[in-house]
Amino acid sequence: MDFPTTDGEDLIRVRPLKALWHIELNRPRVLNSLSLAMVRQLARVLDAVQQNPQVRCLLITGSGPKAFCAGGDIKWVALQVRSENRAEAEAFFHEEYALDLAVHRSSKPVVVVAHGVTMGGGLGLAAGADIVLATETTHMAMPETRIGFFPDVGSTGWLYAKCPAGYPEYLALTGDDVLGFHAVRVGLATHAVESYRLPDVLRALQDAAPALTPERTTAQKELFELMASVTRPEAIPVDAATDTWVRSYFDGVSSVPELLENLSQCQMQSRLCEGVFRRLSERSPTAVALTLALLKVQRGRPLEEVLAMDERVARWIIQHHDFWEGVRARLIDKDNRPRWHPARYEEVRSFGPLDPFLQNPPGQEQARRPIK
C-alpha cells in the first residue's frame, strides 16, 4: 500500500506480509525526514495495526541506503513560523509527539532498522521500538542545539532509561555523533547486524511473526531470542575510557558555564575535552541551557508528561531568535555563522525551574492539547 500526497509522492509504503506489517519511510531525497503529512499517515497505519488481530509485529525501515530518518522537517517548521503560519508548525510537534507516544504504547512489538542517518525525530520513532537494529552505517545523534532548538521527542526523559551514566547529558547537550555498533554500546540500539545480513534478519523476522505471542511484553522476549541467533553481540564495541570520561564530566552536571570551565581544564582525555568544548561554544547558548534545564526536570517523569513539556517548549522556542537564526545559518543560507542572542552562556536566563513553565509570549499562549 502506498500513501500518495496530492502531488503523487508516496511518503510511506506499507507492505502487509501476513503477520508482519512493514512500513518504509519514503523521502530518500531528504533522508526520510518527517513531514506533517507523513506523520499523519504513519499514525493511521499504526492505528490500523493495533486494530488488526492478524498482525503480530510491525517493522519500520527507511528508503534508500543513506538514512532511516534524519528527523523532523525542521526547515519547513521554521518557514511556517517565519510566514506567520504558526498553527501548522505547532500541529507538527503535537502530532509527531502523539505518534512517538503511540509507538511506545503499541500493543504489538515494533522493530526499527536504524540503517544510516537516524537523528532527532528518527530517534523518536526508534525510542519506542522493542528491537532497534544498528548496522555499520548507523549514524545517530540529537543535534538540535546546533540549530537553536532542543532534543525533543521525549529524549530528555527516555535517554535516562536507555543510556549509561553521563550519556543522557552528553548526547543531549553536545549533539555528538554515535556511529555504527557504538549505538548499541550507549543504549540507543538493541542489536548489531552487518547491513549485508539485513535481508536474512528480515526474512527470519517474517517467518517468526505468525508464532509470536499476541501480547507485547512476551513477544518482545521472543524477538530477543530470535535476534540473538541472527545478530552479532560480539561486534558491540567496548570503550571503557570514553565511558569513564563521559560519566566524570557529564553525569549530574549542574550548569553549562561550570561544564565549560571543567572541560577547559581537563587532564583526562584532553582531545575529547577540547573537541566538546569547541562544539558547545558553537551552539546556541539558550538552546543548550534550556536542554540542561529539561534534563533535570524530565528525568524519571512519565513519558506522557515529558512529551507534554516538550510540546510547550517547542511552542516557546520556535519563536526565539536563535531558532530562525540557527535554521538560516545551517540549513538555508548554509554560511554556518549563526549570530546567537544572547551570545554567551553567562547571559542566558536560568530556566529554573523552566520559568515560567516556558509559556509563549503574552497574548499568544494557547490551551495545551493532551498528547494522545
Rank of each mutant, 00 (worst) to 15 (best):
Leu295Ile: 05
Gly363Ile: 05
His321Gln: 13
Phe181Gln: 00
Phe3Arg: 09
Val184Met: 04
His341Phe: 14
His320Glu: 09
Thr218Gly: 07
Pro53Thr: 03
Tyr170Cys: 01
Lys75Ile: 07
Tyr345Asn: 03
Ala48Thr: 04
Leu303Cys: 04
Asn262Pro: 08
Gly300Glu: 11
Arg328Gln: 15
Val276Gly: 01
Pro302Val: 03
Arg203Thr: 11
Leu58Ile: 08
Gly180His: 05
Thr174Gly: 05
Glu365Pro: 03
Val348Thr: 02
Ala172Lys: 03
Leu173Asp: 02
Phe250Ile: 03
Gly8Ala: 07
Pro338His: 07
Gln269Cys: 12
Ala126Arg: 00
Ala211Asn: 10
Glu95Asn: 10
Glu305Trp: 11
Pro28Gly: 05
Gln359Phe: 12
Leu260Lys: 13
Gly187Trp: 04
Met268Phe: 15
Ala329His: 11
Val193Ile: 13
Ala70Met: 11
Ser248Val: 09
Cys57Ile: 01
Val132Cys: 07
Arg44Thr: 12
Ala134Val: 04
His94Thr: 06
Arg283Ile: 00
Arg283Asn: 13
Met268Lys: 09
Ser106Trp: 00
Glu88Met: 12
Arg56Pro: 10
Val55Leu: 10
Gln298Val: 04
Phe150His: 02
Ala293Phe: 04
Leu31Ser: 06
Pro302Gly: 09
Ala183Ser: 14
Pro233Trp: 09
Val30Met: 09
Pro342Ala: 08
Phe92Pro: 03
